[in-house]
Simulated scan of single mutants.
Amino acid sequence: MAKAEVDSAQHNNNRLGNHSSKNMHRRHTTLREKGRRQAIRGPAYMFNEKGTSLTPEEERFLDSAEYGNIPVVRKMLEESKTLNFNCVDYMGQNALQLAVGNEHLEVTELLLKKENLARVGDALLLAISKGYVRIVEAILSHPAFAQGQRLALSPLEQELRDDDFYAYDEDGTRFSHDITPIILAAHCQEYEIVHILLLKGARIERPHDYFCKCNECIDKQRKDSFSHSRSRMNAYKGLASAAYLSLSSEDPVLTALELSNELARLANIETEFKNLIEFHMETKS
């Protein structure tokens, strides 16, 4: 009976390992394909005349979103039968990103009411980076965040959903693919936004040990060691930020000391962590 249980456990571990490997392979294959598309398109598209691939209606819609023309945006969303509200301008930004980037809360709220709205994740990261608290709250009220699952996943992890939550192969995504909303808020020292995200259940997961031999870590190190190291750096930088330490820990001082010791140990293993120690010491002071 004991042998059967051991065999069953080994079978489950193998199955989970195979599933993880398949997901990682699929993720990297998709990124390669999107990279090829971007390379084929090249940088020249940035210098094309605005609207070369847009209809006059779409041009007017994007301009209205960018400049906060609420009546026009509302009328077009409610009355137009041909409008593609996910269309993008020559810089690869859609109406939601333009509205958020220019701090137009009312326009953002109008767009968020539309079903199948693309790049909601990009808009959230953009609002966090600019410290637009009210817009962050509006975006977090979107149904995509109802269960809180989207907040725990980075753009790279969201990719497996095969939707348009993030613009993986466009310039619309200006943040590292391993950045989650709360990591970005912590990096930007946005206390109020960090607090909002913590109330939503978002947390920064501590990276695995450097010598971890789980399937996920092995795959990441083998496929792209640079991205793996960068994701660890971004996570620890978020954990070490004053905003996250003060709001997520019952004893921020003790947590800071423990984190400092851990970073000092990592600096002897991963040299890139030496700069992070300096950042952490500045944060504590």
Rank of each mutant, 00 (worst) to 15 (best):
residue 30 T to H: 01
residue 158 Q to P: 12
residue 243 A to F: 00
residue 206 R to D: 09
residue 196 I to D: 07
residue 174 R to C: 07
residue 5 E to Y: 04
residue 242 A to R: 01
residue 47 F to W: 10
residue 132 Y to I: 08
residue 113 K to A: 12
residue 184 L to E: 02
residue 18 N to V: 09
residue 64 S to Q: 02
residue 116 N to C: 08
residue 74 R to H: 08
residue 106 E to W: 00
residue 206 R to G: 05
residue 284 K to S: 11
residue 142 H to D: 06
residue 111 L to Y: 02
residue 185 A to E: 07
residue 231 S to G: 15
residue 119 R to F: 06
residue 253 V to M: 10
residue 85 F to D: 01
residue 122 D to P: 05
residue 145 F to G: 01
residue 42 G to P: 06
residue 16 L to C: 13
residue 283 T to N: 13
residue 190 E to G: 02
residue 205 E to M: 07
residue 265 R to D: 11
residue 214 C to N: 06
residue 142 H to P: 14
residue 40 I to Q: 11
residue 69 N to Q: 07
residue 36 R to E: 11
residue 178 D to C: 15
residue 129 S to N: 04
residue 35 G to Y: 06
residue 230 R to E: 09
residue 134 R to S: 06
residue 61 F to T: 09
residue 262 E to D: 15
residue 199 L to G: 11
residue 238 G to Y: 00
residue 16 L to Q: 14
residue 104 H to L: 04
residue 223 K to W: 04
residue 25 H to R: 03
residue 278 E to C: 10
residue 132 Y to H: 04
residue 9 A to M: 14
residue 37 R to N: 15
residue 25 H to C: 00
residue 220 K to M: 07
residue 172 G to M: 01
residue 228 H to M: 08
residue 21 S to I: 00
residue 54 L to C: 13
residue 212 C to D: 07
residue 139 I to V: 10
residue 53 S to Y: 04
residue 242 A to T: 04
residue 204 I to L: 02
residue 106 E to D: 15
residue 177 H to I: 10
residue 271 T to Y: 06
residue 140 L to D: 03
residue 90 Y to L: 10
residue 88 V to M: 11
residue 208 H to V: 11
residue 267 A to Q: 10
residue 132 Y to C: 01
residue 88 V to C: 13
residue 25 H to L: 01
residue 55 T to D: 11
residue 3 K to T: 15
residue 114 K to I: 03
residue 97 Q to M: 08
residue 213 K to G: 13
residue 261 N to P: 04
residue 9 A to Q: 10
residue 60 R to W: 02
residue 259 L to P: 14
residue 161 R to F: 13
residue 233 M to E: 03
residue 130 K to A: 10
residue 43 P to H: 07
residue 172 G to R: 04
residue 138 A to F: 01
residue 212 C to F: 04
residue 44 A to H: 13
residue 195 H to D: 12
residue 198 L to K: 03
residue 116 N to F: 09
residue 273 F to V: 12
residue 246 S to Q: 05
residue 195 H to K: 14
residue 74 R to W: 05
residue 39 A to M: 10
residue 83 L to E: 04
residue 257 L to N: 13
residue 227 S to N: 15
residue 181 P to M: 05
residue 270 E to S: 08
residue 204 I to G: 07
residue 227 S to G: 14
residue 70 I to A: 03
residue 261 N to A: 08
residue 115 E to Q: 05
residue 225 S to K: 11
